[in-house]
Structure formats: structure tokens, C-alpha cells
Design a protein around this nucleic acid. Sequence first.
DNA 1: ATGACTGACGATGTCAGA
Length: 256
Amino acid sequence: MPLKLATWNVNSIRARLDAVLGWLETEQPDVLCMQETKVEDDDFPSDELQMLGYAVAMAGQPTYNGVAICSRLPMKDIQIGQLGASPDAEKRLIAATIGGVRVLSAYIPNGRTVSSPAFAEKLAWLAQLRRTLSEREAGRDVFLGGDFNVASDERDVYDPEAFRGKVHFHPDERRELEELKQLGFVDTFRRFEERAGLYSWWDYRAGGFRKNQGLRIDYAFLSTALAARSKRCRMDEKPRHQDKPSDHIPVIVELE
DNA sequence: ATGACTGACGATGTCAGA
């Protein structure tokens, strides 16, 4: 069954609602994973998405974090949080089964600076994500979309020398991402595109987008068998040109 | 340049993002 899936850190679903609705109408994905929705579940604009034919599963909290999945196909077995997470854990992971595919929307902690406790928490969260994937999702067809806050290699960083050893490009977090891939996940974008300088995020400040000073830190991972069904993967810069954009852009995968 | 911009919360600023 053809399936079009996307992931997008929207940086507040309420601030970005018109942009997201417009993008859905234009792109017509079957599934959109969102991150940084920054809204409690009761205030999530579900009705507006339903008007476009999308059901929503969300896990939010006040002010920070928040993830969601919206889908035109039925969602089953919605699951919130990592393996062993306490109910008051930050809302950074949600999963649902859609059209036979286990879909996960993930928002990996930023890490702030390498010397901060937040960086150790980021590494621990990534390690726990691997355990969650191994124990819950082994053998399934998985789409893992999200803002991973880690660039994979030099091609994904506008100034690799400046970023080397810094947060988003530190060897420890890159190793975590590599080990995640070694579980059997394909960076779908790289299946179709080898060029450097293609990014999913640009700093709002200092004309980052205009100067193409960005990072590729948002990924659409597919489990190995499912990756064989992918026929296209791209990042859509159009929303970044509009007024009041998110600092991230969508990543889109098409399966046949 | 520990700068710049944006959003939430809810206040005339602070925190976080990346």
C-alpha cells in the first residue's frame, strides 16, 4: 500500500497551526509526526486537523516538548513514552500503528552544552530509545521520525570544524545515533541523496537560513525491510520561506 | 560577540531552543 509519511518539528502547534494546515493541504501526507508541539492535550487544536481528515494522537505538557502523530488512516495501539518511563517524564515520544507500520514521533533532548547535565541526559535518552526500539518494536515495520538534535556527519553541518566536539556534533551523541542505526534503521534521506549542505534546521538568528547555515538533525528512519519499500525522501524548504516559520522543515518519505 | 530570533508564560522579564 502506498504510504506518504512526514516528520516536522513545528515549534509550537498553536503558533504554527495555519502553516501546518496549509502544508497538509498542499502535501497531502497520510501521516505527519510532529515535535515541540508545546501544548497540553486539552488545548491541542485537534478539531482543525480533523476538518482536514486527520485524527490526532498527542502527548503534551505545558510550555516545553510535546509530540503528536496525525493520520488520515486509523491509528491503533497508541503508546506514550519510553520503555520504563514514569508518567511525569518529559513528553518526547509517542507511537501508533498505521497501515501496518509502527510509527514513532520522537523529540530527542537538545543537550544544551557538552559540559551540562542536559548533555548526559540526552545521551541517556538516546540509549533508552535504543532499548525501547529493541524490546518493543523488534521485527516490525517501523517509521521513526523526529528531531534527533544530532547531525550524522560532516555533510550535515554547515561548519564542521566549528561544531566538532560541540553539542549536536559531539562524538558521543554521533555514536549513539550510529548505534541506533545499527539496530536496523535506515536514514532514508541518505538512501536517495548524497550531497552535503542540505539541512532540516536553521537558526532564526543572524540570517541563518538566508546564508544556508544549518544542520540536518531531523530524520525519517525506516526499519531495514521497510526501507526497501521507500521510493522517495526529501526535505521541504518551502515552509521556511513563509512568514513566521518553524526553525525546522518537514522530512517526507514515500513508500510503495 | 555565552551575541542574534522565536515562543510560552504571564509580565514590563526569564527560560529554552540548537
